[in-house]
Lab assay of single mutants.
Amino acid sequence: KWTITVQGEEAIKWAIKVAEARNLDYTVHIDGDQAHITIE
């Protein structure tokens, strides 16, 4: 299990796209213009 933090709307969209493309189980916690994405 690991967490990445991305900043900015484009980076958030990209990170989610990558997680979905790899069929990963993930949760997103949005904090202002940052998102913390935890991959199970």
Score class of each variant (00 low, 15 high):
residue 1 K to F: 10
residue 1 K to E: 05
residue 1 K to P: 08
residue 1 K to R: 12
residue 2 W to E: 02
residue 2 W to K: 03
residue 2 W to N: 03
residue 3 T to C: 13
residue 3 T to I: 12
residue 3 T to R: 06
residue 4 I to S: 00
residue 5 T to R: 06
residue 5 T to N: 04
residue 5 T to M: 08
residue 5 T to Y: 10
residue 6 V to R: 01
residue 6 V to P: 00
residue 6 V to H: 01
residue 6 V to M: 05
residue 7 Q to V: 14
residue 8 G to A: 03
residue 8 G to Y: 03
residue 8 G to E: 02
residue 8 G to M: 04
residue 9 E to K: 09
residue 9 E to P: 09
residue 9 E to Y: 11
residue 9 E to C: 12
residue 10 E to N: 10
residue 10 E to V: 09
residue 10 E to M: 11
residue 10 E to F: 10
residue 10 E to I: 10
residue 11 A to L: 10
residue 11 A to M: 11
residue 12 I to H: 01
residue 12 I to L: 13
residue 12 I to T: 04
residue 13 K to I: 10
residue 14 W to C: 10
residue 14 W to K: 08
residue 14 W to Q: 09
residue 14 W to H: 09
residue 14 W to N: 08
residue 15 A to V: 14
residue 15 A to C: 06
residue 16 I to H: 01
residue 16 I to F: 03
residue 16 I to P: 00
residue 16 I to K: 03
residue 17 K to H: 12
residue 17 K to F: 11
residue 17 K to R: 11
residue 17 K to P: 01
residue 17 K to N: 09
residue 17 K to Q: 13
residue 18 V to W: 15
residue 18 V to T: 08
residue 18 V to F: 15
residue 19 A to H: 02
residue 19 A to S: 04
residue 20 E to M: 06
residue 20 E to P: 01
residue 20 E to R: 04
residue 21 A to W: 11
residue 21 A to M: 13
residue 21 A to S: 12
residue 22 R to F: 15
residue 22 R to P: 04
residue 22 R to T: 15
residue 22 R to I: 15
residue 22 R to H: 15
residue 22 R to G: 14
residue 22 R to N: 15
residue 23 N to P: 10
residue 23 N to D: 10
residue 24 L to R: 05
residue 24 L to H: 05
residue 24 L to F: 09
residue 24 L to C: 14
residue 24 L to K: 04
residue 24 L to W: 15
residue 24 L to V: 06
residue 24 L to I: 05
residue 25 D to M: 14
residue 25 D to V: 15
residue 25 D to I: 15
residue 25 D to R: 15
residue 26 Y to T: 02
residue 26 Y to S: 01
residue 26 Y to F: 12
residue 26 Y to P: 00
residue 27 T to M: 07
residue 27 T to I: 11
residue 27 T to L: 05
residue 27 T to E: 09
residue 27 T to F: 09
residue 27 T to Y: 09
residue 27 T to D: 05
residue 27 T to V: 11
residue 27 T to Q: 07
residue 27 T to H: 09
residue 28 V to Q: 01
residue 28 V to G: 01
residue 28 V to P: 00
residue 28 V to W: 06
residue 28 V to E: 01
residue 29 H to Q: 13
residue 29 H to R: 14
residue 29 H to E: 13
residue 29 H to L: 12
residue 30 I to S: 04
residue 30 I to V: 11
residue 30 I to P: 03
residue 31 D to P: 01
residue 31 D to W: 09
residue 32 G to V: 03
residue 32 G to M: 04
residue 33 D to C: 11
residue 33 D to E: 11
residue 33 D to K: 07
residue 34 Q to S: 12
residue 34 Q to K: 14
residue 35 A to R: 04
residue 35 A to L: 06
residue 35 A to V: 11
residue 35 A to F: 12
residue 35 A to D: 01
residue 36 H to W: 14
residue 36 H to S: 09
residue 36 H to D: 04
residue 36 H to A: 06
residue 36 H to R: 11
residue 37 I to C: 02
residue 37 I to Q: 00
residue 37 I to F: 14
residue 37 I to T: 00
residue 37 I to M: 05
residue 37 I to P: 00
residue 38 T to N: 03
residue 38 T to C: 04
residue 39 I to T: 02
residue 39 I to Y: 10
residue 39 I to V: 07
residue 40 E to T: 15
residue 40 E to Q: 13
residue 40 E to R: 13
residue 40 E to A: 13
